[in-house]
Design a protein around this nucleic acid. Structure first.
Lengths: 215, 215
DNA sequence: CAGGCTAGTGACAGCCACTGACAGTTGACG
DNA sequence: CGTCAACTGTCAGTGGCTGTCACTAGCCTG
């Protein structure tokens, strides 16, 4: 959750070199993951392609998994920040809704600053379709939701641990976000308009879905 | 999801022997996991304690993870079955609610047939507090929720893939179930009455949590 | 700008989860 | 009782990941 939103500008020669190897590792890894599959890609392979030792790979990324989630992390951090900055007079669900709308509007450039968007989209699909990664993705999502629930609770002056509403609302909201994220990864219709409309439609279904009779 | 609810009665000597080693592996593994921690327990250790080869361990359990989730799987399967058997005239949320109530009433004996309940409770806590296992647990939970959503959709004569309400309702419900499960694992107050009351209270909060104003 | 300091690296050795291949053992069953 | 198939052990190997240690190259101070 304590994630840099933007990569810091490098200063010295050393820093720049580090940044370059890191970028290379990231890009090559995602490229290999998405073309051959996550499990069928070995860390050695990635390291070889970038011409560093396997050991060096692990100095940049704590695990093979971590590479896969690097970009996702950035996007999540942006969303969390967006929620934090919503004016206090919006009610919870509205704030979340506006935050997600804002986030969607600016994802593209944010991502492109690190890797080609198209590569990230393929990565997202890969995460969703690789059991081991999906599991981690879900855990990360709940961590994010937890952070959001805290923000919401604070906005409303409630205690997250006693009042269930923040967590419940955020959990429901999180479900919608994962759904739209998946759609975006598939890009069946990935225009901003479509995503926004989709998100709105899902959210509109939330309340009625919990009502008594569906007919 | 295609899980035996009850362990089948063994017939021959061979079968019985198999069952015994499996039981031993399971019990010893959970015991070690919960006392030393999951990561600090090696498969060799488990195998040695049961006096079989490591290879044999992997013939009974596909992975180290799988052992940890053996009992959880059983409980989940029971719940799913309970949902399936709810009379068709109950509305979705009521059906889920009654299913979970029924499930809670009979978990204890069901578990005790395989391992001491107290061991399972410790296991559950361990799962929740071990990141790698928590991740898997969440993925498994969504798989279960997916199955439940299908059942609900069918009851209501809806198509899960077009109508969002089943999934949304189940997602929200799933959140509540995980919450109560966690509480039960901790056994702050684990009486059936307390759990049932807790579940009911959570469910009552669902609708209001999604409403506009919380004040 | 020389020379020391240190971050970053490669090479190597080792742990552990997991898998395939092959051979030995032991219940099942005619 | 003998044969067959199931179950198991052994062994060798792969891949993720970590510790150690020596070395090099950027950095900084005098």
């Amino acid at each position: 959750m304590t994630e840099r939103l933007e990569p810091a500008r490098p200063t010295g020669l050393r820093e720049r070199k580090k940044r370059r190897t890191r970028d290379s590792l990231l890009r090559v890894a995602l490229e290999l993951f998405t073309t051959q599959g996550y499990e069928r890609t070995t860390v050695d392979e990635i390291a070889d392609a970038v011409e560093v030792s396997q050991r060096t790979f692990f100095r940049y990324f704590a695990s093979k998994e971590e590479v896969a989630f690097t970009v996702v992390s950035m996007v999540e951090a942006r969303f969390l920040a967006a929620v934090r900055e919503r004016p206090a007079d919006e009610n919870p669900l509205t704030a979340l809704r506006n935050a997600v709308t804002w986030a969607w509007e600016s994802v593209d450039e944010a991502i492109e600053a690190v890797v080609p968007i198209e590569l990230h989209m393929r990565t997202y699909q890969m995460i969703e379709s690789t059991p081991a990664l999906l599991a981690v993705h879900l855990r990360r999502s709940t961590e994010l939701e937890d952070a959001i629930a805290r923000v919401i609770a604070e906005r409303e002056g409630l205690d997250v641990d006693t009042d269930l509403r923040p967590r419940i609302a955020v959990a429901a909201f999180g479900g919608v976000m994962r759904l739209t994220g998946r759609m975006w990864g598939r890009r069946e219709d990935a225009s901003l308009e479509a995503i926004r409309e989709m998100t709105a439609r899902c959210l509109d279904h939330l309340e009625p879905a919990l009502g008594g009779d569906w007919h």
